[in-house]
C-alpha cells in the first residue's frame, strides 16, 4: 500500500480551511427528550472587538449532565460563564442574545445577578476554599444568602451531598479548608455551592487539577448529583465528557457544531468536524 502523503499545510492554512468549512453550516442538534431548564438563544459574546461566541442556541435538559467540549479557545468557558452572568465581572465583555432560565432571560433588566448565581452555582477549575474552617467554608455562602436558622443541619447536608461528610465530620471546626487534599478541597467547594440549594451547577474543568482517584470521586459525585441538580460541565478531557455526561455539545471557533446524546456524539457523530476532533485529527 502506498504511504499517505505528508500533510504539508501549515496550521494556519488548516485552521483557515476549517473556518471556511464552518461557514454557513447549521449546528447538528438532536433535541433532548427532557424539558430544558436553561436555554440559550443566539448567544454571542465579545471580548472587546473579538467575538468569542457566535450565535449559540442550545437547550440544556433538567437533571442531566451536559458536557461542553472543544479545543482551547473555542468558547466553552465563555459559554459556561454566560449561563450565570459570571462574564459580567470581566471588563470589556459584551453579550448579545438570551439566556433563559425557566423561560426568563437572566440578562433582562431588573434581574439580580447575585440571585441568578445562587440558583445557578459554579465550581471552578482550581479549588478555592476560604482560609477558614471547613464548617465556615460551607456556612459562609448560607449566611450571605440570608440563611440564619438550622445552619449546622444545612452544612452537614451539603457536605453529605458532596460526599465529604464522613471524611471531615470529626474536625469541622478544627481544620481549615486549606488543610484538605486537592480532591477534598474541590468537594468542599462543591458542598459550598450546593449549600444554597442551586438548581443548576456549572463546573469549569472541575477535575483538571486532581489525580485520577480524586477525579474518579468527583465524577461519581457528578453522577449522584444529577438526580437533583442540572449539571453543565466544561472539560478539555474528552474521555471525561464521555464518562460523566448524558449530552454533549461540541463548540469550535465560537460556534456550536453539534449537540446530542453523548453516546451518539462519541459513537456516530453527525458532523465531520466533530468526528475529526474526537478522533484527535485536530485540536
Amino acid at each position: 500500500m502506498a504511504p499517505t502523503p505528508l500533510d504539508t499545510r501549515t496550521e494556519t492554512e488548516a485552521l483557515a480551511q476549517r473556518r471556511e468549512e464552518l461557514q454557513g453550516l447549521e449546528p447538528a442538534v438532536v433535541a433532548p427528550s427532557e424539558p430544558p431548564v436553561l436555554q440559550t438563544r443566539d448567544l454571542s459574546i465579545w471580548y472587546g472587538s473579538q467575538r468569542a461566541l457566535d450565535r449559540v442556541t442550545l437547550d440544556l435538559p433538567a437533571r442531566r449532565v451536559t458536557a461542553i467540549i472543544g479545543p482551547s479557545g473555542c468558547g466553552k468557558s465563555t459559554f459556561l460563564r454566560a449561563l450565570n452572568r459570571m462574564n459580567d465581572l470581566i471588563p470589556g465583555v459584551r453579550t448579545e442574545g438570551e439566556v433563559l432560565f425557566h423561560g426568563q432571560n437572566i440578562y433582562a433588566k431588573g434581574v439580580d445577578p447575585v440571585e441568578v448565581r445562587r440558583r445557578i452555582g459554579m465550581v471552578f477549575q482550581k479549588p478555592n476554599p476560604f482560609p477558614k474552617s471547613i464548617y465556615e467554608n460551607v456556612a459562609f455562602g448560607l449566611r450571605i444568602n440570608g440563611y440564619r436558622d438550622r445552619l449546622d443541619e444545612r452544612v452537614e447536608e451539603a457536605l453529605r451531598r458532596a460526599a465529604l461528610w464522613d471524611e471531615v465530620k470529626d474536625f469541622l471546626h478544627k481544620k481549615s479548608g486549606l488543610d484538605l487534599s486537592g480532591g477534598q478541597q474541590q468537594r468542599l467547594c462543591i458542598a459550598r455551592a450546593l449549600a444554597v440549594q442551586p438548581e443548576v451547577l456549572l463546573m469549569d474543568e472541575p477535575a483538571s487539577a486532581l489525580d485520577p482517584i480524586a477525579t474518579a470521586r468527583i465524577e461519581d459525585l457528578i453522577h449522584e448529583l444529577k438526580e437533583e441538580v442540572t449539571i453543565v460541565i466544561v472539560t478539555h478531557n474528552m474521555q471525561q465528557a464521555a464518562r460523566v455526561s448524558d449530552y454533549t455539545a461540541f463548540l469550535y471557533l465560537g460556534r456550536l457544531v453539534e449537540f446530542g446524546p453523548t453516546a451518539q456524539l462519541f459513537e456516530n457523530p453527525i458532523r465531520k468536524q466533530t468526528e475529526d476532533y474526537i478522533t484527535g485529527k485536530f485540536g
Binding site: 464521555a242 453523548t262 453516546a263 459513537e267
Partner: peptide
C-alpha cells in the same frame, strides 16, 4: 459493549 468502549475507556 460499544457504549462502554466509546465512553468509559
Amino acid at each position: 459493549c460499544t457504549d462502554l468502549l466509546a465512553l468509559q475507556q
